[in-house]
C-alpha cells in the first residue's frame, strides 16, 4: 500500500494542500487534473525528487518521506521521456542495471527481455535522437521496468503520442499492471483515466476534490470543474425541495428523477438532452422554460447555444436546426429536458 498522508507543498505559483491518497497494491490508480493542478509535483514527491513541506509518504508501512531517491522501490517515467541523449537505446536500458551492479551476462539478458517486452528490441543500437515519440516512451518504460519496481509512477505518459500509438501504449500499460506492478498514472485526459483506472483521484487547484472508482467519479462528479472536464456543462448547485424537485442556484425549479428528500447537492444534465423549440409545444417533459439566447458558437457537432432561463444552460443543436428555427443571438426560445435526463447528486 502506498499512502500519502496530509501532504502539502508550496511552490510559489501554486500549492498542494493536505492531500490524502491511498493506493492499493497492484492497483491502476489515476490522478486526474488540469495542467498546473500539482499532479506532477505529487508524483515527484512520491519518487523523492521533491520533498513535501509537511505530511508523510508511507510505502508498505514504512515512512519513506525522507528516504533517498535511490533507496525507494519506485520507478518514474516522465512525459518528456527523459531518455539520456548521449547513450544508445541499449545503454539507456543498461544504465540502472549497471548502477545496481547486476552481473554483465545477466544484465544483458534482462536488457533484451525488457526491450522485447516493449517491442524495441530491434532499436537497441539506435541513438534516442533517431526515435519517434512512442519509441522513446517505450524506451523510458523499459529502462524503468528493468529495476522491477513495485510501484511505477507515470507522468502524462500518453500526452505526446498520436492517437494510434495511444491505444497501443494503453494496452502496454495494462499489461505492465497485470505483471503485478502498481501504477500511479497522472493525466489531464479523463478518457485516459476512464480507459485505464481502477480508481481515480481528482485534483483541482491544489486540492483533492474526489476519489473513487472511475464509475463513481465520472457518473457522480461532485464539482463543476469535474463536470465540465467530462463535458457536462449544465452543472448547478441545488437545494432539494421535494423527492423529485430541486431549486437550482436558488433561481429555477428543476424536476429530476432521483429521490432527494431535503438534501442539498448538485444537479447536472447533458447539453445534448436539452431540446430547443420556437414555441411552448405540449409534451411529456416536466422541465419547460422560456429563455433568451445569449451566446451562439460552433462546435464539432453543430452549434452550441447558451440560453438564459434564470440560470445559464447550454444546449447542442445541429446547423439544420439553427437554420430551420432561425436561432440567433437575443432571440427568445423555449427549452425543455426530461426529468429523467437530470441527475441529482447529494453532498457527501
Amino acid at each position: 500500500m502506498l499512502e500519502l498522508k496530509n501532504i502539502s507543498k508550496n511552490l510559489g505559483e501554486f500549492s498542494l494542500n493536505n492531500i490524502n491518497i491511498s493506493v492499493k497494491e497492484k492497483e491502476y490508480f489515476v490522478i486526474l487534473g488540469i495542467s498546473g493542478a500539482g499532479k506532477s509535483v505529487l508524483l515527484e514527491m512520491i519518487a523523492g525528487l521533491l520533498k513535501p513541506d509537511s505530511g508523510s509518504i508511507v510505502l508498505s508501512e514504512q515512512d519513506i518521506t525522507h528516504e533517498k531517491i535511490q533507496h525507494r522501490d519506485i520507478g518514474i517515467v516522465f512525459q518528456d521521456h527523459a531518455v539520456f541523449p548521449h547513450m544508445s537505446v541499449y545503454k539507456n536500458i543498461m544504465y540502472p542495471l549497471k548502477n545496481m551492479g547486476t552481473p554483465k551476462t545477466k544484465a544483458k539478458e534482462i536488457v533484451h527481455r525488457f526491450a522485447a517486452l516493449m517491442n524495441i528490441d530491434h532499436l537497441l543500437d539506435r541513438m534516442p535522437s533517431t526515435l519517434s515519440g512512442g519509441e522513446k516512451q517505450r524506451l523510458a518504460l523499459a529502462r524503468t521496468l528493468v529495476l522491477e519496481p513495485k510501484y511505477l509512477l507515470l507522468d502524462e505518459p500518453l500526452a505526446s503520442v498520436d492517437a494510434q500509438l495511444k491505444s497501443e501504449l494503453r494496452f502496454l500499460l495494462r499489461k505492465i499492471n497485470r505483471m503485478g506492478i502498481t501504477i500511479v498514472h497522472v493525466t489531464h485526459d479523463y478518457e485516459e483515466a476512464i480507459s485505464l483506472a481502477e480508481r481515480v483521484a481528482v485534483i483541482y487547484q491544489g486540492e483533492l476534490i474526489q476519489t473513487g472508482t472511475s464509475k463513481e467519479v465520472f457518473n457522480n462528479p461532485k464539482s463543476k470543474f469535474l463536470a465540465n472536464f467530462t463535458g457536462i456543462k449544465n452543472f448547478f448547485s441545488a437545494k432539494g425541495l421535494s423527492e423529485n424537485l430541486s431549486i437550482a442556484e436558488d433561481k429555477v425549479k428543476v424536476h429530476h428523477y432521483k429521490e432527494t428528500a431535503d438534501s442539498d447537492g448538485y444537479i447536472l444534465f447533458r447539453s445534448e438532452d436539452v431540446i430547443v423549440s420556437a414555441a411552448n409545444n405540449p409534451s411529456s417533459t416536466l422541465n419547460n422554460f422560456e429563455g433568451k439566447i445569449i451566446d451562439i458558437f460552433p462546435n464539432i457537432h453543430g452549434m452550441e447555444l447558451l440560453i438564459d432561463i434564470g440560470i445559464e444552460i447550454t444546449a447542442h443543436v445541429t446547423n439544420e436546426s439553427v437554420k430551420h428555427l432561425q436561432l440567433e443571438l437575443n432571440k427568445n426560445v423555449w427549452v425543455s429536458f426530461k426529468s429523467t435526463a437530470v441527475k441529482f447528486i447529494p453532498h457527501e
Binding site: E44, G48, I76, A82, F84
Partner: peptide
C-alpha cells in the same frame, strides 16, 4: 543539461557522484 535527466538518473539508482560523471559531465 535538463535537471530532469539528473533526477531520472537518481531514480535509476545512480549515486549523485555517478549521476555527475555519467549524465551531467558528458552532456
Amino acid at each position: 543539461v535538463p535537471v530532469r535527466l539528473e533526477k531520472v538518473a537518481l531514480n535509476l539508482k545512480a549515486s549523485p557522484t555517478k549521476t555527475f560523471f555519467t549524465i551531467s559531465l558528458p552532456l
